[in-house]
Amino acid sequence: MTTRLPSSTTSRLSTAPSSIKPRQLSHLHAQLAQLSANLADLENLLRMTSVQAESVRGLGAFHGGLFMAASKVLGEETIAGGQKGDK
């Protein structure tokens, strides 16, 4: 059995500019200004993050080089120490 909801005779509020109150417009304008400011802040933060990511990448490469050099030096000392112990 199908039930039908009674049709509503109340009309929906129009979203036409003539029915929007000036207070609502000023509120929307303030929200848009805040959103625009937040987007500008986000853009600056993303730019700074990009610069910092490049610096971290360079730092990682530098550390990798130090680890490889230390490994080579310590490896040579281990080999040299092992050869001295054999003699």
Rank of each mutant, 00 (worst) to 15 (best):
S7P: 10
V51A: 13
G64R: 02
G82R: 07
L32A: 14
S19F: 13
G64T: 01
S8K: 01
A30G: 10
E76C: 11
G85F: 06
S71L: 05
P17Y: 06
A53R: 07
R23V: 12
V51C: 00
F62Q: 08
T10K: 14
L46V: 12
M1Q: 05
L74P: 12
R23W: 03
R12Y: 12
E77H: 13
Q83A: 13
L45P: 03
K84T: 09
A61Y: 07
A53H: 09
K87E: 04
R47W: 04
G65I: 02
M48L: 14
S11Y: 03
L42H: 10
R12T: 15
A16Q: 04
N44K: 07
T49A: 11
S36Y: 00
G81F: 12
V56K: 00
A53S: 09
S26G: 07
A80K: 09
S55Q: 09
L46Y: 14
A40N: 04
L32C: 10
L74H: 15
E76K: 11
I79V: 02
G58H: 06
A70N: 13
A37V: 08
G82M: 02
S55Y: 04
H29A: 10
T49N: 04
V73E: 06
P6K: 09
R57V: 11
M1Y: 10
K21I: 03
L74G: 12
L42F: 12
A80M: 01
G60P: 00
A69P: 03
F67R: 11
M68D: 07
Q24T: 12
T49F: 01
N44V: 05
S55L: 08
K72F: 13
L13R: 10
Q34W: 07
F62D: 15
Q31K: 14
A30C: 01
S55A: 15
A40T: 01
R47M: 03
E43N: 07
R4Y: 07
L13F: 05
S36L: 00
V56C: 09
L66E: 00
H29E: 06
A53E: 01
A40K: 00
S19K: 06
T49H: 08
A53G: 06
F67G: 00
P17R: 02
L5H: 15
F67H: 12
L74D: 10
R47G: 14
Q31F: 13
Q31I: 09
A61F: 00
G60A: 08
G85A: 11
P17K: 02
A53L: 13
L59R: 11
L45D: 11
L5Y: 10
E54L: 15
V51T: 15
L46E: 05
V73F: 10
A16L: 08
G60F: 05
R4Q: 12
A61S: 04
V56D: 00
H29K: 09
T49Y: 03
R23K: 00
S7T: 13
Q24H: 14
Q52K: 15
H63K: 02
M48P: 00
P22I: 15
L32I: 11
S8D: 05
Q34K: 14
T3I: 15
A80W: 06
S7W: 00
L32K: 12
L46R: 04
K84C: 02
E76P: 03
S36W: 00
L25V: 15
R57P: 03
P17I: 06
I20N: 06
R23P: 02
